[in-house]
Design a protein around this nucleic acid. Sequence first.
DNA 1: CTGAAAGCGCTTACAG
DNA 2: CTGAAAGCGCTTACAG
Lengths: 336, 336
Amino acid sequence: MSVTIKDVAREANVSVATVSRALNGHENVAEDVRKRVLEVADRLRYSPHHAARSLSSRRTQTIGVVLPDLYGEFFSELMRGIDAVARAHGLHLLISSYHGNPEEQGAALRAMRGRVDGLLLMSPFVAGREDLGESLSPAMPTVLLNSGRSDELPAINVDSYAGARAMTRHLLDTGHRRIAFIAGPDDNFDAHERLRGYRDELAEGAAGARPWIVQGDFTEASGHAAGRALLGGERPDAVFAANDTMALGCLFAFNQAGVRVPADIGLAGFDDIPLSRYVHPGLTTMRVDIAELGGRALRTLLERFAHPAAPPPADARLPVALVARESSRSRPIDTA
Amino acid sequence: MSVTIKDVAREANVSVATVSRALNGHENVAEDVRKRVLEVADRLRYSPHHAARSLSSRRTQTIGVVLPDLYGEFFSELMRGIDAVARAHGLHLLISSYHGNPEEQGAALRAMRGRVDGLLLMSPFVAGREDLGESLSPAMPTVLLNSGRSDELPAINVDSYAGARAMTRHLLDTGHRRIAFIAGPDDNFDAHERLRGYRDELAEGAAGARPWIVQGDFTEASGHAAGRALLGGERPDAVFAANDTMALGCLFAFNQAGVRVPADIGLAGFDDIPLSRYVHPGLTTMRVDIAELGGRALRTLLERFAHPAAPPPADARLPVALVARESSRSRPIDTA
DNA sequence: CTGAAAGCGCTTACAG
DNA sequence: CTGAAAGCGCTTACAG
């Protein structure tokens, strides 16, 4: 059996209450007693039992992170950003994925009860957002992460809409007129926002330009298929994919067909995944600071801890930045 | 305040003991009582308080994962593999990184007390392995992950030694004689094993071949520096970098210098990170199934739960696989 | 099959 | 500044 607070108390000749106070840095402990307790605790390698502590203090020092998936660069960057902040505040992280399965989301959320002080939740599914309230306890501070707006909960979102507008504008500015868009999955919030940005910029910024949309699902394979489809009939001047992964799939389809980027057709993505800078030609994209997304979400949650009664802050939008690489170089006709 | 077992008991007209038994699926509960309890619990959206449960049951249903860092592809793949197994067993994951700081490792480990039923620990630092015992409780089942051997603890390691030998053999087989090696950081277990594999294969497989070692530290920048250094004097036939990241840095240095791969110089890495297949030329490397490394580590831990008294299994080595791409194509002189 | 009670290891008013 | 005691929300022998 491991050593408990009682062992420390006995060894230090004080009550467990005093040990608790000394260890938790309360002021009302005589200096010599504090030193003795600390020394004994150290010698005994005492480490407080977390479950006991959180049962009585009603705090777990743990933040729950509920994500749709644990896959790839996005997850890893997000965790890095969250972890940096958690660490700075001495908080632990309990990770849970519902594996892209919206039905399991509720279960994942409920399982967090009594384990965490607050929740960071990423729920990018457009559908099922209504059911969220069912599983979300009002007593549990929660911040939404890239999951759209909410009336009750603070939310941090990548500014996909503004990014998509800026990218569409960039493609127009570099001389592309007929711009096709490879859309993301229909049930995804970011996919919606990016499509909306593309549509709006086209409508306002390019008189008479018609939206030209090919359905994708954020996977490389769907980008590849879309790329092939776009080569079938009349070709666009440029293709704007709703994420880099699809843009890359599209690029490979173009390569295979001997279509040159950017000479024959411009190409742009969204996210600035590491690969984007390494492919040839380098992919023009919108940079998203995913680590910052995570860090900011946690900071917002800590803000809620400090001021639970404050009205939830307005939805924060994480700005994105255009990264113009070779794939969207100005069309020859314009530079002439 | 959220609903507790007492609320359910009152509502269902039974004792809390019965509620507990019903909810935990014990046999000794009358069928109609069980149904009533379940129904009430559901209606009240009761969810057991985790800290209370684990304090009394002495089980947390949580596995601690202590890693040197939370960065990049390795971490993400590892987590994916661990999560898949955890999930299948209804276990949660408490993540902790000691941020490459060996001294903080002990603190991270101690903080897991009372929070987890077992530990997956990755401690690739060669130094400080002795101090590990200090922070590791004998009562806490622990499995070592890519951290070398241990006399007390089960350990799973990527078979870096065999992989490095196989890669060296492959480079020799493809006609390269003078093979330089870019080593990883001196305090890293895998770096040691890979260097050892390179040395041994060279000694046994290439009569008279002298090891040619350039120090790196697993970063792209160090690979780049090593690549430039190798171009300085007499050049090797091929370069074997201890990981892909350095190999890529080296490749960029060669590109910048106008040195062609593989025509002028062969190149190989280790890990098979996603980028390796996308660069030009495609990088020859050793594939490591990182997700499987994680999954297997957790399975080993569960094995310990089931048979705590069994002698720790022999160290498992996760096999690696040669992926021969363009960067190590046979030298013209040999294919002639 | 069911309940009363002890106990898990802490924290925190309450007294002094 | 310190201690005795209650209590956090569960589980689990122990009786019956």
